[in-house]
Design a protein around this nucleic acid. Structure first.
Length: 441
RNA sequence: CGGAGCGUAGCGCAGCCUGGUAGCGCAUCAGACUGGGGGUCUGGGGGUCGCGGGUUCAAAUCCCGCCGCUCCGACCA
């Protein structure tokens, strides 16, 4: 993409309202635009990141045996009355009336809708288990939205719902999601600690929140120091082992009853990026989600629900990966894997070299942001650092004279000069495969 | 929802106390120079001063009401 044509309104100055790094950087990098309190437009660069996060979430959901569907944002109040939550949910739920005077709600979550779908079609125990997910916008009319998309009123969430015949099955579904969540967050470069949590308005009797530790986190978590040395990528450590270790959200933590000795207890702030619930028959019972069992009996299904804050994750990743100059995107979520900087637009040799590199990158399916604007070198470097692309290819008159371009890694700041030939030699191999192997070592 | 604060150009702000032609920096536009970390010069454009009412010869400025936004606390992916 040519920067001169790309809609990327970066800001040199920080908007006054932004209190935390991710909010500041998302505004400055031209990723989002506030529409009203807690409600944002996603501009092209931001949307690219959001889509990348979504993609990883989807891949992990699919790999875990979940199937995607899409439910409506606007839901009939009737279903919420059935579950008993219409009155329970409070002012956080946005209530709307349609032209016929019918009560509707803008969905803050989708247990009611999915249960209604399930009960309409699934009649036999032989069709269980089922696990359905969606990635959909939610609206919760937060009293005090803040920190940009970290706590917006409108937010994008992956939510899924498991249906099982019995508790054991439901427990397997729960643990499956537990491991899936660890893998999902790990793929975005995040270490998320699973902590026992209060199920809150969703209800139920077992629940874990996944917290990315960060000073700007809104919640306090207490955990066994053993977590600091564990592999949380959802692979090596067993779910049972992790669940056996103590970690609790502050509303679940009781200093007197805590099994962890004080010297091993850690207290930190965390960003809640995921939350899983097992709630048994809380919705299936009142809403009549039952299947016929092997002996012809009626069995109320056991349910769980599982949420990942997709839009919040974008902010959480930035909280975890930035420096004074801007964002440092981890592999996989970066809006572009590589940026190309032409330091002297209008100079025939620079223009030509850039055009060649640009075309070659595209040939190898490398999505590249080519800064072809007639700006000062400093402005371009600062801008490129701000938006945090993992790799920068720098083409300037000084290097071109000796037939060389510079490759810079955003994360380490490490630079290396390469001849055009050796750059192109890398393209079919390491670069094209990983998108991230421009530098040896 | 309780407490505090702020609304003046795209962004950051000054002006308000003490009423009298709406300003600064950045950004933007035109041209020229420049070219390895937000460069320089010249010239230009852009404002219902959040909205409504009141006081006054005169309101960004004083008064009243409303709306919006932000921050601090109680709730949540």
């Amino acid at each position: 993409m040519r920067r001169s044509r790309y809609f990327l309104p970066t800001l040199k100055e920080t908007p006054a309202e932004a209190q935390i790094a991710s909010h500041r950087l998302m505004l400055r990098a031209g990723m989002i635009r506030q529409s009203s309190a807690g409600i944002y437009s996603w501009l092209p660069l931001g949307l690219r990141v959001l889509r990348n996060v979504e993609r990883i979430v989807r891949e992990e959901q699919d790999a875990a045996g979940c199937q995607e569907l899409l439910m409506p944002t606007v839901q009939p109040a009737e279903l919420w009355r059935e579950s008993g939550r219409y009155d329970d949910y409070g002012k956080e739920m946005l209530r709307i009336t349609d032209r016929h005077g019918r009560d509707m709600v803008y969905g803050p979550t989708h247990e009611e809708i999915i249960t209604e779908i399930f009960r309409s079609y699934i009649k036999s125990y032989r069709d269980l288990p089922k696990n359905l997910y969606q990635v959909q916008w939610k609206f919760r009319d937060e009293v005090r939205p803040r920190f940009g998309v970290m706590r917006g009123r409108e937010f994008l969430m992956k939510d899924n719902y498991s249906f099982d015949l019995d508790k054991d099955g439901s427990r397997r579904s729960y643990d499956n999601m537990y491991a899936t969540y660890l893998r999902t967050f790990a793929r975005m470069g995040l270490r998320a600690i699973p902590v026992k949590a209060d199920p809150g308005a969703i209800g139920g009797d077992m629940s874990h929140e996944f917290h990315v530790l960060a000073e700007t986190g809104e919640g306090a978590v207490y955990y066994d120091a053993a977590f600091d040395d564990l592999d949380l990528s959802g692979g090596a450590e067993s779910v049972a082992r992790l669940q056996g270790l103590y970690a609790a959200a502050d509303d679940k933590h009781d200093a007197k009853a805590c099994p962890v000795p004080p010297e091993r207890l850690r207290n930190a702030r965390g960003i809640e990026v995921g939350h899983i619930f097992y709630f048994g028959t809380k919705y299936s019972a009142p809403m009549g989600a039952v299947v016929t069992g092997p002996n012809g009996e009626s069995i109320t299904v056991e349910m769980g629900s599982y949420g990942i804050g997709v839009s919040r994750l974008v902010a959480a990743i930035i909280e975890a990966y930035h420096d004074d100059a801007g964002i440092i995107w981890p592999a996989g979520v970066a809006p572009f894997p590589v940026g190309l900087i032409n330091l002297k637009v209008g100079d025939a040799a620079c223009d030509e070299a850039c055009a060649e590199i640009y075309a070659t990158l595209l040939e190898h399916s490398m999505d590249v942001l080519y800064d072809d604007r007639d700006e000062s070198p400093g402005a371009k470097f600062a801008d490129m650092d701000l938006i945090g692309l993992p790799w920068q290819v720098v083409v300037g008159p000084r290097g071109i004279k000796s037939g060389r371009v510079e490759i810079k890694e955003r994360k380490s700041g490490q630079r290396q000069e390469l001849s055009l030939e050796s750059l192109f030699a890398k393209l079919p191999g390491e670069l094209a495969e990983t998108g991230l192997a421009l530098l040896p070592g």
